[in-house]
Design a binder for these strands. Structure first.
Lengths: 199, 199
DNA sequence: CCGTTTGCGGAACAGTTGTTATATATTAGC
DNA sequence: GCTAATATATAACAACTGTTCCGCAAACGG
């Protein structure tokens, strides 16, 4: 057997480079050569781990999703209300990580037009997020039509995110979090009276 | 003087072709040649009306915005509540026109990463929309913090739109409009008790 | 009816793209 | 240490990209 290398770890390094490039300079700047250079390798390594550019982009999107999901249980001490707040705050571009994820998502959406497989990936990502939020909600306020409530909360957060992405001056992190707090308060979730850590 | 031609009308035809192409096959399919072909001309005509591709894209986005704005006063009989509903419904991808506008917007956003001028255009478009909705709101329920309310309503609608774009099965037009109706109802706008034409 | 200006088709260009092929280095098992 | 399999650099390729340029057609002003 030859040189041993964790293939999955390599892929992460490459998709990470792609995500960085996309967030910094847009999808147009994410050429094979430039992604490889950003990762400190050449196209030979890239093509070794991804069949083509389309797969690289798909994996980059999925890796970005995984990265977000990985941060979920960071502070998930069976406090569903806090978990709910964190889950929704995860969709707000309030730091570099989350902003990068949004840029990757937008780039991916732009590419998903006319590509049904990519479109399905984006759709499924949303459905998974909806299911996650719905599950949290039914733990907090069961019987309150959690599905529709989840949709509304997610819509609220995503709408703020879309505005904040290209107008960060109008939307500092505090304002985005305030919008989230307001949405949670008016969501007639009497179970969570006040979410700490908001100021 | 030579052959007389309405230059602005020509530009509309070209940006329209670009928008159609972007909505159908994504930003990647919007090459100079293909846009020209879609409009039934050649690159010679395209370069005659746009300095470069970047300007074509910018103008395509602005033309798409203008197209949306043009539909505003269609039924604006001094009924601010109805105008508000229509303005917000204009941001929902519930027909081919509005869906196309959203696809153009997403493509434009993807290109606006790392291009501050395009980013500013996107930001200003949002600000203008916010101002429009705010003005309508202050006509309906003055003194109710119309700015923040407008932001929330727009966020709600845009969030639904983002989900609906790639999951039309989960979001038929009726469901999107129902979400809008719910948002309007719970916006403690006691002035507009019921918006007709929703079913 | 003619000169001049514009509209636009079409070809050519240089650079870049994704992709493929080749060569070299690296390392695990025997 | 030899072999074989993998990892990756490098180079080559053909297709395509945005852009430039040339030439002809059209039509207004005189």
């Amino acid at each position: 057997m030859p040189k041993v290398v964790d293939a999955e770890e390599r892929r992460v390094g490459l998709t990470d480079a792609a995500a960085r490039l996309i967030a910094r300079a847009g999808i147009g700047a994410a050429t094979m050569r430039d992604v490889a250079a950003e990762a400190g390798v050449t196209t030979g390594a890239l093509t070794h781990y991804f069949a083509d550019k389309r797969e690289l982009l798909l994996r980059t999107f999925e890796a970005s999703l995984d990265g977000r999901r990985a941060k979920r249980p960071e502070r998930d001490p069976a406090d569903a209300a806090l978990s709910l707040h964190d889950a929704l705050a995860g969709a707000l571009p309030i730091d570099d990580d989350r902003r990068r994820h949004w840029m990757v998502t937008v780039a991916f959406c732009a590419q998903a037009a006319g590509d049904s497989e990519l479109a399905a990936a984006q759709r499924d990502a949303y459905r998974e997020f909806r299911a996650h939020v719905t599950a949290l909600l039914s733990r907090i306020a069961p019987g309150d039509a959690p599905q529709e409530l989840a949709e509304r909360l997610i819509a609220q957060v995503d709408g703020v995110a879309m505005q904040a992405l290209f107008d960060p001056e109008s939307w500092p992190a505090a304002r985005q979090l305030a919008a989230l707090a307001h949405a949670l308060e008016t969501a007639n979730l009497h179970a969570l009276s006040a979410v700490p850590g908001l100021d």
